[in-house]
């Protein structure tokens, strides 16, 4: 079912009954260029269960973002199909909310207004006080109750990312898609936000698909780590199952010898077997 890999693979693929929650089936993406067709992704088959936390890792240019864009619906696969609960994904929609790489907050709206825009779009029939309550609840959840009336320019990078996450969660998506959400943040803010994301996910239990460049981040957050081979024509190289029990505690994980074994496997995959030759780029 899943392109099986190495020793760390223990995914119970048999659990997939009739159809998994989210299924990418034989998906490829080819872009026509002047020099002929350019294959970004090929032969991607992946099953994701409801409530799973999936991280995708790979070198730049391996089509991670294209992969996520096919789930969010911004990009249609050239061949194959992406299905959510059996229905093919044809266009973007709020059930698959995206936390964009550079936050994508509207600079002329305050933090609260940015979240309200999403809440109002998804539940137009709710009353204004109801919608405002949802906005306040989610801003408070990411620790930004105080900053509700500030404009994005008055917020730090970490705070902007919190607003973007609050906006995404406020509309109760079935899948939360995050494209390198913490890439631009400093190490401390990054760890804080990882922990917040995890505790929020623990409560909401939506399915999460997240791109990352950071192996430690993926090991801390994900149930499974999808490792991509290098582009062009990237594939899923391996899928690593991360067995740490939840709720996860960073210190406990760091003491676990399994952590280092998994970390070495991932490093080995990324830097030895699929080392990206920068000269060749």
């Amino acid at each position: 079912m899943i392109s099986q890999g190495n020793q760390a693979m223990t995914t119970p693929a048999a659990v997939v009954s009739a159809e998994s929650f989210l299924r990418l089936e034989q998906v490829s993406k080819v872009y026509p260029t002047k020099k002929g067709p350019f294959t970004v992704l090929t032969d991607i088959t992946l099953d994701i269960q409801a409530g799973e936390f999936i991280c995708v890792i790979g070198h730049s240019g391996c089509g991670k973002t294209t992969l996520l864009n096919m789930v969010s619906g911004f990009v249609r696969p050239t061949t194959g199909e992406v299905r959510l609960k059996g229905q093919p994904i044809k266009e973007p929609g709020p059930d698959r909310m995206v936390v964009f790489q550079n936050y994508a907050l509207l600079p002329w709206l305050t933090a609260a207004e940015n979240v309200y825009l999403a809440v109002d779009a998804v539940w137009p029939k709710k009353s204004r006080p109801q919608k405002m309550a949802i906005v306040r609840e989610h801003l408070a959840m990411v620790g930004l109750a105080e900053a509700a009336n500030r404009y994005p320019a008055q917020l730090s990078g970490g705070m902007k990312q919190r607003v973007a996450i609050a906006r995404a969660l406020a509309i109760r998506p079935e899948i939360l898609i995050l494209d390198e959400p913490f890439g631009a943040l400093d190490a401390i803010t990054k760890e804080e936000l990882q922990e917040e994301l995890l505790s929020i996910w623990q409560k909401h239990r939506c399915t999460v698909l997240m791109i990352t460049h950071d192996i430690d981040e993926a090991l801390f957050l994900a149930d499974r780590l999808v490792m991509m081979t290098n582009g062009p024509a990237a594939k899923i190289g391996e899928i690593m199952t991360i067995p740490f029990p939840r709720p996860r505690d960073r210190e406990r994980i760091l003491e676990d010898p399994t952590y280092y074994q998994l970390r070495n496997d991932a490093l080995d995959f990324l830097y030895r077997r699929y080392h990206l030759d920068e000269e060749a780029e």
Binding site: F74, P92, G93, V98, N102, A104, L106, L117, A118, A121
Partner: peptide, 16 residues
Amino acid sequence: QDYKNVSRVLRLSKKT
């Protein structure tokens, strides 16, 4: 493009 993407994913009405 980011703002257009926000509009698409939220399926904002033409007026909004």
